[in-house]
């Protein structure tokens, strides 16, 4: 039994997310450069097929102020202490509520990607793979918007979404994230190495409260040295 009074999950459709071809192309690296026509066409075709293969779920458990303790580099949620580091702790400042969330494109999607790779069409496999990454990211964007709207009424703001494995927050702490969510949440299982299955899954937390502020995140503070994917355009439609 988890100690959250408010657990919700949502099944989403691709049409809820409005993912564009451009977003997928950027996901493959083509920000400023124009992708070859052949790749653009294949991406458009695969995007149409993605809906049939996605079983998109996003959900969260909300923990309230009395269950949260924040220090300069840690946060405890319902008895589980996370060593999030100073930067992430700073994002959580003023939290009156912490939303522990997960999202997944579903097992069928992983299988679809694998079937494209197995058909020996590496390009199609990679396009399907990128679509998978972008749809689960997009499901998290959806959740952020949902939470902003939910808290607007009481004049609370939300932080960015913050995930273990980013920004010096050890990926291993995902075990505690899942301890704060019901079993098999959104169909996700975590292995010993803190790898989620289905692969196209994301976990994390979001803080909400009157004094919470949305700060710069992701590429601006990420310390990944060799990333081919630094987001140059944060407002992809």
């Amino acid at each position: 039994m988890i100690a959250s009074m408010n657990v919700q999950t949502y099944n989403l459709l691709m049409s809820d997310l409005g993912i564009t071809e451009k977003r997928i192309l950027c996901g493959m690296g083509y920000y400023d450069d124009v992708a070859p026509e052949y790749i653009i066409t294949a991406t458009a075709e695969f995007l149409k097929l993605a809906d049939k293969n996605a079983d998109l779920k996003v959900g969260f458990a909300e923990y309230s102020a009395e269950q949260i303790q924040l220090t300069r580099s840690t946060v405890s949620i319902s008895g589980y202490t996370f060593n999030v580091g100073k930067i992430i702790a700073n994002h959580l400042k003023g939290a009156e509520s912490i939303i522990v969330f997960a999202a997944s494109a579903g097992e069928k999607f992983d299988k679809w990607i694998a079937s494209q790779f197995n058909a020996n069409e590496q390009l199609y496999g990679y396009i399907a793979d990128t679509i998978g990454s972008e749809i689960v990211e997009s499901a998290c964007d959806w959740l952020e918007n949902f939470l902003v709207a939910k808290f607007e009424g009481i004049d609370w703001k939300c932080s960015n979404r913050l995930s273990p494995g980013y920004c010096n927050w050890n990926v291993e702490e995902q075990h505690k994230i899942f301890a704060l969510l019901p079993d098999n949440f959104c169909g996700i299982k975590l292995n010993e190495s803190a790898l989620m299955k289905p692969i196209k899954s994301i976990s994390g937390i979001i803080a909400a409260g009157r004094e919470v502020r949305k700060l710069d995140y992701q590429c601006n503070i990420c310390n990944l040295e060799h990333c081919y994917k630094r987001r140059k355009d944060k407002n992809l439609e």
């Binding site: 493959m28 690296g29 450069d33 052949y38 390009l123 990679y126 081919y228």
Partner: peptide
């Protein structure tokens, strides 16, 4: 050098 991306590499490999 960031002038081509994974899809380019994949079609070259093909």
């Amino acid at each position: 050098t960031g002038k081509a991306f994974i899809p380019n590499l994949l079609i070259s490999a093909k």
